[in-house]
Design a protein around this nucleic acid. Structure first.
Length: 949
RNA sequence: UGGCUCGUAGCUCAGUGGCAGAGCACUACCUUGACACGGUAGGGGUCCCGAGUUCAACCCUCGGCGAGCCAACCA
């Protein structure tokens, strides 16, 4: 049987590399090629022995646009995904979007409002067109706008398995939601009850505690008199005979209408004579008890507190403890209810104004102070959210929270950075019941029906035929109008997306998922709820690791927001510089536990890096032929095997670059494994640019240059360069998939590949970097000796360049380099690398000299080196004036003296000699000797110079 | 009021118990046969402050100071 190879179009493969890195020319077509050929697809079953690796995308809002936070999280997830895929795992990264209840509904409502005016004369609202029509419109909106964000993810290069794309309101997920709701209801973990909840008067819906953002607001502090009376309604006197009263300060005077008690601290001696008495509610005249509770802070204000159980969370707790009635005076419509007496029907703000004026008139207002305090705003529309008593659906959270806490405590789930588990525990240990009903239309409608015959509630997976209490027919049943909190469906994401409640193979293969990567701002909203639901319904954690990335901020460290106008748009950056530079930037900055201050300079820098890689590859292409002009053929068994076999015969420079590559490979892999992507990025950057481009390619020009090349050295060098670049492309591919693919495809030696799961599924091989094996360090190619040798070689060249630079000698001016080797090793070293030194240091000749013969009379610069042990000499005549050279020498002497001083400082300290490890002492002693020798030579040189001057 | 981060070159950030690093910016020189999105050389630091541990601290411990985030809040 012949297996087909899927390859990019022939004309693409034949195309020579462009002059420079131009990402716009290939990113889109590359992505399309991968996607069309199923390169992102996971298999439902592992091959025997194969591991599965799964990440569920944190579903972005379906109406959203890609922002830098998305770019970061998806870059990180794609890096991990591509790395695991290349490592042979059955890798699933599952895409999808969230219906985002309030956000999406608001968008559509805005669109409707623009369409015209309703019967009332005001802009059209959803109520004007009705629920059914509204939902139809919203679905249409979703179809039209919902692909924007997914298309943007594609531009980033995200290797998501699009065939498995899900939407939190698609059929399967809706089924999962109903299943969970009904089960929890049957288990008594979902209940309907009248509770105080946060209400947004503008959105006209209940909000969970998390959806309310406490915000500093300037307000006033009204001090109001509450007179005290006894059971008979007679005024209570103080010890001094004056009328007893409590002065109570409030920031929300309109809630006074709903007061059902005043509270003091039981041990507050000022008020002990008032215990058990009553207070007269100003303006209203209602008698309310004076209660005692340790919740009251004696030190704050007057030490007395008014209690409004219907409109304040703390007061609700107080009310419950003391069996106080709750009077709802603030209505859902933003107006005072009929309980508000004379104030009924007024808007909250109007009521406040009138009430304050009336208090003033009645003489019950002592003073008004300016006061700044926190007000809860609706997360979505920034309207002041009011605590209101209301009938809603809740999840009884404690039984779900307990095992979820335990899972993190016992290490089944690990947070990274670790410090976040404290935040998690803090929240989970103080968790309140979760209000899950929302008075919206866009979302999962609650599967509960109310019976008009018996008031019973029927909760059912399907449309019920009869009331579950009185068996009345469906006609008697009315479905709850409300929908569920968006986060309710997101909480099921790790398993609902895999087909639950059906028992699917995908579920078996990929649950629990491997990693959850997300922002720390949704630990409570999402992470904790997935853990609770996962454990409860799957009997196992939804993921083993939680990676929390930093927040992307602007270069000043401020949160990016549209209102501040400081948003850096990832798509603009991709247009300008390509997806890869942006990805590399994000990876390089993905250090843990801090903010990421994104600067476009950095992105530009990594674009230059891409261009550097591009040109390094171009260099290979320009050179890639035999010395006689014939084509280079791939060694049988591949380049790596060939290099291994011929390792001993390779030049030191080739052995050096191969050895360094192994170190880099280890570093990159460790960075990926430890979730320190910045480590991987840095290792790749440094090796590619500072070692391969700056040094190796420069060295390699000698054996490649026709006039200096030997055929064997030429071949060996080209094979090495090919191997180095090919390996680098594989190492870099997870971070920069596009440019590496483009360059890899251009390489002469490449082979189609396939992942194990695809082999099993009988799929064709693909000529692409995406399925190539991620490199493993090859110990046989490590060579410490070569590393030392090349390090010495670099020292010699740098010393000469430094001499040239310090003395401002033009690069065009060549001169003779003389050297005196201190030992035989140094001598053979200098002989071996004469040509390299000549070439890279731009000297005309490299010759040995005998120290005795190097007449003291010569006007020469002296550059003593430690490793290699040689003294370099450069004739100064016609090159530099003596003054300049003595300046350079003086600087070198000073530096050497300082180093020596430092070294001797250590060695003369008795405690150091006594306690430091012997190896270190020996090393310091050796350094001292070297520095002494170097200094002597430098001083001798200075002496010669001054004599001759 | 707690909890968590962070403080290193002008800027953005790496980093290690043993003589402080990168990119950008800056200065000088160079269009050398992959690359000016480039090369070579150079300047630039009390590693926030103070104690302690250690032979040795930028790194570990404690205490300050400063910045940010999260949670709870005084009604």
């Amino acid at each position: 049987m012949t297996k087909k190879v899927i390859a990019p179009a022939a004309d693409k493969l034949a195309r020579p590399l462009a002059k420079s890195y131009e990402p716009a020319a290939f990113e889109a077509e590359t992505y399309q090629f991968w996607n069309e050929n199923g390169c992102f697809e996971a298999s439902d079953e592992n091959v025997p022995g194969q591991e599965s690796f799964a990440i569920m995308i944190p579903p972005p809002n379906v109406t959203g646009v890609l922002h830098m936070g998305h770019a970061l999280t998806n870059t990180i997830q794609d890096i991990l995904t591509r790395w695991h895929r290349m490592s042979g795992d059955n890798t699933l990264w599952l895409p999808g979007t969230d219906h985002a209840g309030i956000a999406t509904q608001a968008q559509v409502e805005k669109a409707i409002a623009k369409e015209g005016k309703g019967p009332s004369g005001r802009p059209l609202t959803r109520h004007d067109i009705g629920r059914e029509e509204f939902l139809k419109r919203t679905w249409k909106w979703k179809e039209e706008h919902g692909t924007a964000i997914t298309n943007q993810l594609k531009r980033l290069g995200s290797s998501l398995d699009w065939k498995r794309e899900r939407f939190t309101m698609d059929e399967g997920l809706s089924k999962a939601v109903r299943e969970v709701f009904v089960k929890l209801y049957e288990e008594g973990l979902i209940y309907r009850g009248e509770r105080i909840i946060n209400w947004c008067p503008r959105c006209q819906t209940a909000l969970s505690d998390l959806e309310v953002v406490p915000t500093d607001r300037k307000g006033s502090f009204w001090h109001i008199i509450y007179k005290i009376v006894d059971d008979a309604g007679k005024p209570v006197k103080n010890a001094d005979g004056t009328q007893a009263q409590l002065i109570i300060a409030t920031t929300r005077p309109e809630t006074l209408l709903g007061d059902t008690a005043v509270a003091v601290h039981p041990e507050d001696e000022r008020y002990s004579h008032l215990h058990g008495k009553s207070a007269v509610l100003p303006l209203v005249g209602r008698l309310i008890p004076v209660i005692t509770d340790t919740y009251v802070d004696k030190e704050f204000g007057s030490g007395a507190l008014k209690v409004t159980p219907a409109h304040d969370f703390n007061d609700a707790d107080l009310g419950k403890r003391h069996n106080l009635p709750s009077i709802s005076v603030m209505g859902k419509d933003g107006k005072i209810t009929s309980e508000g007496g004379a104030y009924a029907g007024l808007k909250f703000a109007e009521a406040r104004e009138k009430l304050v004026a009336d208090l003033q008139t009645a003489g019950d207002l002592v003073k008004v102070e300016p006061h700044s305090h926190k007000v809860g705003l609706c997360q979505r529309c920034e309207t002041v959210a009011e605590p209101i008593l209301s009938k809603q659906w809740f999840v009884k959270i404690e039984p779900l929270a307990k095992p979820a806490i335990a899972a993190v405590e016992n290490g089944d789930i690990v947070f990274s950075p670790k410090s976040w588990d404290k935040t998690y525990f803090e929240w989970m240990n103080n968790i309140r019941d979760w209000c899950i009903s929302r008075q919206l239309w866009w979302g999962h409608q609650i599967p509960a029906w109310y019976c008009n015959q018996c008031d019973g509630i029927t909760v059912s997976r399907e449309e019920p035929r009869n009331c579950s209490s009185c068996n009345a027919t469906a006609i008697a049943l009315t479905r709850d109008e409300d929908v569920l909190d968006t986060w309710f469906s997101s909480a099921l994401w790790p398993f609902s997306t895999l087909g639950w409640p059906d028992k699917t193979k995908a579920l078996e293969t990929f649950y629990p998922t491997s990693i959850l990567e997300t922002g720390f701002d949704i630990i409570f909203f999402w992470v904790s709820r997935m853990i609770m639901m996962g454990i409860h319904f799957m009997g196992d954690v939804p993921f083993k690791k939680v990676y929390l990335h930093a927040m992307v901020r602007d270069e000043k460290g401020e949160k990016m927001s549209k209102s501040k106008g400081n948003v850096i748009d990832p798509l603009t950056l991709i247009d300008q510089h390509g997806a890869d530079p942006l990805r590399f930037t994000l990876a390089a900055m993905a250090g843990q536990g801090r903010d990421i201050k994104l600067s476009t300079d950095r992105v530009e820098g990594y674009r230059a890096f891409c261009n550097k890689l591009w040109n390094a590859t171009k260099f290979l292409h320009l050179q890639f032929e035999e010395a006689n002009g014939g084509p280079i053929t791939e060694p049988a068994g591949g380049t790596e095997a060939w290099l291994e076999k011929n390792h001993a015969k390779l030049t030191p420079v080739n052995r050096w670059v191969l050895s360094r590559l192994q170190t880099v490979t280890t570093r990159v892999e460790k960075g990926f494994a430890d979730f320190e992507l910045n480590e991987s990025a840095q290792a790749l950057y440094e090796y590619s640019w500072l070692e391969v481009c700056d040094w190796y390619i420069e060295f390699s020009k000698l054996p490649l240059r026709p006039e200096t090349a030997k055929p064997e050295a030429r071949y060996e060098t080209l094979i090495t360069l090919h191997y180095v670049l090919e390996t680098l492309m594989r190492l870099m591919h997870p971070i920069m998939p596009f440019v590496t693919e483009e360059l890899w495809l251009s390489l002469p030696f490449k082979h189609a590949a396939n992942s194990p799961a695809r082999v099993r599924d009988g799929k064709d091989e693909v000529l692409s970097l995406i399925f190539q094996k991620f490199p493993k360090a090859n110990e046989k190619l490590r060579d410490e000796g070569a590393e030392k040798t090349v390090s010495s070689l670099k020292s010699v060249i740098e010393a000469i360049r430094n001499f040239r630079g310090e003395n401002a000698i033009s690069p065009k001016t060549e001169f003779v380099l003389k050297y005196f080797p201190q030992n035989a090793d140094a001598e053979s070293f200098m002989k071996e690398f004469t040509t390299d030194i000549r070439q890279l240091a731009r000297v005309s000749e490299v010759v040995a000299f005998e120290k005795s013969a190097a007449s003291a009379g010569a006007l020469e610069a002296s550059i003593p080196l430690v490793l290699p042990a040689v003294e370099l000499r450069i004739g100064l005549k016609g090159l530099v004036n003596v003054e300049e050279e003595s300046k350079r020498l003086k600087k070198d002497i000073e530096r050497t003296e300082s180093d020596l001083g430092h070294c001797r400082g250590k060695l003369t300290r008795e405690s150091f000699i006594a306690k430091a490890p012997p190896e270190l002492i020996a090393k310091e002693k050796a350094t001292e000797a070297q520095l002494v020798a170097k200094l002597a030579e430098l001083e001798a040189a200075m002496q010669r110079l001054s004599q001759l001057a």
